[in-house]
Design a protein around this nucleic acid. Structure first.
Lengths: 210, 210, 210, 210
DNA sequence: TACTAAACGAGACGGTACGTCCCGTCTTCGG
DNA sequence: CCGAAGACGGGACGTACCGTCTCGTTTAGTA
């Protein structure tokens, strides 16, 4: 999350402008909305932010990492209010996620940085830390809460629990992303209802599997 | 699939070299493997193919569409042999798809072109025609076959059938892609088994939903 | 002058279209007027002439030689009517030449092909044959006529005669071209009168020199 | 002379490299000598100068203007030492100019840029400022000196003086260029003697003309 | 009248250079 | 020491022409 490559050990000289940081990230999101990922340039972001290009490179090593940071904050909105039932919780978070993917800056940036990350290990780490783990936590919280409510059997083998969490995460996130970006069709409540139903029905079968 | 932007209305002049077409697509895949999406250049592809850069641009309007065509043929390998049960069929096709996503050319290219397609309607169309529809057909075939075997209830409302097909497609494809590229974890038989189980268990619930 | 590179030894097969020849030369002049030398392209000339590019290259080896041929015919208008005195003859031919250099096709083409000819011997030969010698003959005729009229002393050493002819040619043609294209100032009657006077006055001194 | 298109109003940012300027102009002359005008490419000049192509385009808008600047400095060598008589001065400067036109870089470039200038007003201005005016000054100086020596009548109508200066300039420069590049024959001392005699003899006649 | 061979239009081909854009780095000056 | 300004070397872009080539189609003269 911290954009500084070196955490400012020395204390001498002019300190970095914190205003610049937020201006840059805002400018990056604005540029993503207007231009999309592939037309976004560092020079343009710098101009929009009223900042020199040098200042960008002092903080982020390249365009990819800058964009990840700019987009990551949007994932902070995702939360999991207790709606009383697992199915309602699932439906709610899926709709939140879908709303996020409808924003043009997310749409154009998410797949792009994932694509780049297949060949760029530091980028993959930053994505995991900034975005993926943040989403995954929702799955953990939802599952734990459902167990507390007794909707799901408590305390089986922890390894299995992890595996099922992972599965659910990939299924939910993957399905929503695929629906929104690849199939390019709307993630409307009817579709979400079907997805939730599929999960509710399937989870039991998976748990039995062990 | 056809790379020609206009389907050659007139019959006059020197015909386009079909050898060039295949050489270019092969060169594109090779470049994807070696360099990845973002380092791939049109000039490099032309050189590898033993072809002039102009020849590329005569056939494809830009790098994105070229890459879609180059990668699309890989999706031809996906097929759906009858393994006797829906769960086996699902597991089989998921593993095939996962194997496809392990190939570096697919890995680096797929997300990238999807990302670009969010801002490029012709590209989105080409992706749908060349890749998405080809995969979707597998879902249709698998579902029809399961109905013939009596594993799934036959002939409900056709609109519902379509909706469930779409859901299953996005869930399966999305989950696999997300697992492989975003979570960056292996799509191994254990994970596939859990995914299949989830689907088998959930499908009933979704059908009831109508 | 003849555009055919090989003078058609065989007599079989379809003969070349003579209409194409004139259409091409006219199209070349038109393109020169509209676009100027450096923007003129073979493809454009072919299109204007309603002819395939191949047809151009069958007749001329390159753009330079084509342009020389296209422009050369304009130099046919230059003639030397007997106006009764050497000074009048000079003034007349200079004004004719100046008028030729005011035409945009000559203006843009003449210096360009001369520039190219400094590195292209065949082109230099073609220019000499098509343009230079045609102009030089005017000097010879004018000088001979002046001798017949007794304005110039007859029959000195023929070598000297040649040398003076050459000098006069370079002085007259050079001065007009330089005035028109380099100084970019008008070749008006007053200037021509001064040039003629200079020549008339100077010729005696040169003849004495021997 | 100055290569900068805008004379750098602001004083901020990294200043332009003056070493690059001279390296580029030297490289341009070298390329002219080796390749000639029409084979000279911006990329090649950049490589020879050890400079990026962008650096060229930052300073000159196109090949023509670059070449004018590169060649212009050669005209600095032209000077007019006082040899005691007008005829000697003329002969001397003509031979100097002829020597200049024998250099391959001048030969191939001079006519070419003049040809281009017929269609390019900024280029024409640059040529006038960098080359033409520089030569014209020699005529003025020579004439003034001859007047001081009493070889030419002093102080007639200044308009006439200007007109004769212009005439002499076009006659001398035009004759030499035409001899060297169009007739493609040597500007040897004998020819120069004849030209000088022609001028000496003719100038009186022109002056009388008024 | 049919054959034959060259010339024709069309347009794709391998190339080369163009002039532009952006990259990520550097060099300057002022705060 | 930071930051703006902007020049730097580098490299890819997509375009425009070059001059050549391969097609199928005329078009004369000859057989």
């Amino acid at each position: 999350m911290c954009s500084r490559t070196t955490p400012r050990s020395t204390r001498t000289g002019r300190p970095r402008s914190t205003e610049a940081d937020v201006a840059i990230l805002e400018a990056t999101r604005a540029a993503l909305v207007e231009l999309g990922w592939s037309k976004l340039t560092m020079g343009d972001v710098a101009t929009r932010a009223g900042v020199a290009k040098t200042t960008l490179y002092r903080r982020w090593p390249n365009k990819n990492e800058l964009v990840v940071d700019a987009v990551a904050v949007l994932f902070d909105e995702l939360e999991l209010p207790d709606l009383g039932s697992l199915q309602a919780d699932i439906a709610h978070v899926v709709l939140q996620f879908a709303a996020l993917l409808e924003r043009p800056e997310t749409q154009t940036a998410l797949m792009a940085v994932v694509a780049e990350s297949t060949r760029d290990v530091p980028l993959r780490e930053r994505i995991r830390a900034s975005i993926v783990d943040r989403q995954k936590r929702l799955v953990l919280d939802g599952r734990r809460r459902a167990q507390e409510r007794g909707e799901l059997p408590a305390d089986p083998d922890p390894v299995t629990v992890d595996a099922i969490d992972d599965l659910v995460f990939d299924v939910v996130a993957g399905a929503v992303v695929h629906r929104a970006l690849v199939s390019a069709e709307p993630v409307d409540p009817a579709w979400v209802a079907r997805l939730s139903a599929l999960l509710m029905g399937g989870l039991g079968a998976v748990a039995v599997l062990g």
